[in-house]
Design a protein around this nucleic acid. Structure first.
Lengths: 143, 143
DNA sequence: TATTATTGCATAGCTTGCTATTCAAGTGTA
DNA sequence: TACACTTGAATAGCAAGCTATGCAATAATA
């Protein structure tokens, strides 16, 4: 058989993801946050005072990955945790003021990265591209 | 500002890359290799007896990342290194027979993952999709 | 109600990626 | 030829992902 990496979707996806992450890293480093914290912050900016399990239902990472990320976020002063009156196993996760203040500039950073990355595509191609990604993700997730 | 992660190229790219990697991992685990070794093997199957620098020119990862991956591959009996008569700093990297034997089944595994992932797209969409990825990668790499 | 099962998280240990730094070997030059 | 510069690779240290496992609190049941 023959194999051309430049024609392999998986190879390209991996490469592209690393470039996106690097680009985002550069944009958000000045804000004092790192890429892995981004998905968590996105959810908490919408609604905080939630449990780890609640977050897990919204972010497709393993529970252990999220637990470690939350620990680093607490260490970095981005979140605080309080007792959950309803269940002593779970705690409630809250944004700190510091994290709350980063919302707008973080959105702008992410948009800037997306804009820069997609500028090589026409407007219709961009729509088609993100649509394809959503479908591929859905397909892989559902087995 | 508002931010919809399901519309964010970066968010989707990251998610998709993790799903691809997980899928490939499942396919190649029986072969005794792991995902990070894949790009290195692809190059060495084409041509071995090369230096780390040669590999680096073909794979877009940092030098330190490659050095660590090569160490694990040596540990796992996939490569051997010999003295480079032309330069004592660099060694020549060779596939072991074990690694050489994995070529066809690895290609098949990768193709299977790509096929499965892209099955939700029409044939013309697949072409368009990989083409867009190549252009996005090129755009991000060239600044 | 005592026991068992489930659930929510934490921890251990690994890979793969990054940046920054170090070091030895090779190259160029005063 | 000695010194400085460059280059090829290794190492340290961290983040972010994974699987596997453990543990305490809660829920379900005999």
């Amino acid at each position: 058989m023959d194999f051309e990496k430049e024609n392999s979707a998986g190879y390209l996806v991996n490469h592209m993801a690393r470039l996106f992450a690097k680009e985002l890293q550069h944009h958000i480093a000045p804000l004092g946050i790192v890429v892995g914290q981004f998905p968590v912050l996105l959810e908490l900016w919408l609604k905080d005072g939630v449990t780890q399990k609640d977050l897990l239902a919204k972010i497709d990472v393993e529970q252990a990955t999220l637990a470690n990320t939350l620990n680093r976020m607490e260490r970095d002063g981005l979140i605080k945790r309080t007792k959950n009156p309803a269940d002593a196993r779970a705690q409630l996760i809250w944004l700190t003021e510091k994290a709350r203040a980063l919302r707008e500039s973080s959105y702008e950073a992410a948009q800037a990265v997306n804009t820069k990355a997609l500028q090589v595509l026409s407007v219709s191609e961009r729509t088609q591209f993100t649509d394809s990604m959503r479908r591929v993700i859905e397909g892989l997730r559902s087995g």
